[in-house]
Design a protein around this nucleic acid. Structure first.
Lengths: 200, 200
DNA sequence: ATAGGATATGGAGGTAGCCTCCACTTGGCA
DNA sequence: TGCCAAGTGGAGGCTACCTCCATATCCTAT
């Protein structure tokens, strides 16, 4: 137990995102590229040892940097999530609240099928706390609130419901690739329901 | 290649559900009870070797009888599925088509959370072709058709959509047990949509 | 009653992936 | 330039899957 005295230690203490040593930072990038490639080629459940091998690092290094598969998935998805959130914010003024939600769900569901076998864990991945995850989550909450304030979205809907729907849709796509062309239909079902409007 | 000549062979040829030898039939039952217990205690992803051990049979015997985990899950769910289908048929005359669908989805979603970790594969399990699976599937198709003929269910809804809904709901329950009390809410969302009726 | 063949059994063993641990190496600051 | 915190790699222990086949058991025809 000593007083933190070096610059390193101070930076770490303040930002709580520790500055990685140069070699470590390079390895982190190598792992990310390898992971991205392999997730695309072979799905989200590719053995992590394969990722380490392609990155040219030891398996221990991979685990040190990304303690869980979800963390690695979230990291490789970081930029995509940031773009999605940004795109949603950008088009927002042009859309009615309901349509904004529709677009958000559709894009996120499509994104969740970027890697095969990602579906079941997308809910966990999206809560990993990376900047991308936080951005996409915040944007979803914003759209939901906006829709409810505008009176076009039911008051009893929660953001968790959004996640369930995205999960369901990407599982559907995974089990039956023909439904990839029906993402819109599935989102529409969730928005408008199975029942004919006005019946009941 | 010889002419089938024994009774066994003839029965097998005709019914295509081969008569099991007495010892094999007993073992099958032992496996089913053990599986049911363990699925309840430890979830649908309990190691199959545990099941074999509790049943007091070798792992090879288990695999010979149930080639996949899904087959075993479907077999242990057989009677529950038969009851669900029967109950749905029984109450049908008393309910409006929409309410019959609601009850069906709610019960099936609840059933899909009988075993922890079953959610993601419920869609596969339900297509295993056991009598229970067939019954529940036929009943679903019937309710869907009836609702569409009555004009209370959208024409573009398919039975696959029912499965997605059930999957989504049971995943929700799995990730967040508090939503167990909200099965009704989730079913309602899918029936009526997240949009406020009449808006749009 | 029994012989013979079809049916069924069990569990050893090969495969695969997960994750930890720690002796060793390296980068960067004083 | 020496030191040590930070970083590394991969062997090894663990768990689970599933196949294979020598052996055991049942059932039937005679």
């Amino acid at each position: 137990m000593e007083v933190a005295s070096t610059w390193q230690a101070m930076r770490k203490k303040l930002s709580d995102e520790p500055t990685l040593r140069a070699d470590a930072r390079k390895n982190r990038e190598l792992i990310l590229s390898a992971a991205e490639e392999l997730f695309l080629e072979r799905g989200a459940d590719v053995p992590l040892e394969e990722v380490a091998k392609r990155a040219g690092v030891g398996i221990g290094t991979l685990y040190r940097r990304f303690p869980t598969r979800e963390a690695l998935l979230a990291a490789t998805s970081n930029e995509r999530f940031l773009s999605l959130a940004e795109a949603s914010r950008a088009r927002d003024p042009d859309l009615a609240p309901g349509d904004a939600v529709r677009a958000y769900l559709e894009e996120l569901a499509r994104d969740a099928s970027t890697y095969q076998s990602l579906a079941a864990s997308i809910g966990t991945v999206i809560q990993c706390g990376t900047p991308g995850c936080d951005a996409i989550t915040a944007e979803g909450h914003r759209l939901l609130r906006r829709g409810q304030e505008a009176g076009t979205i039911r008051r009893d809907v929660t953001y968790a419901d959004f996640i369930y729907v995205i999960t369901a849709i990407s599982i559907a796509i995974e089990n039956d690739s023909s439904s990839k062309t029906r993402i819109g239909h599935l989102v529409d079902l969730f928005l408008n329901g199975i029942s004919v409007k006005g019946s009941d």
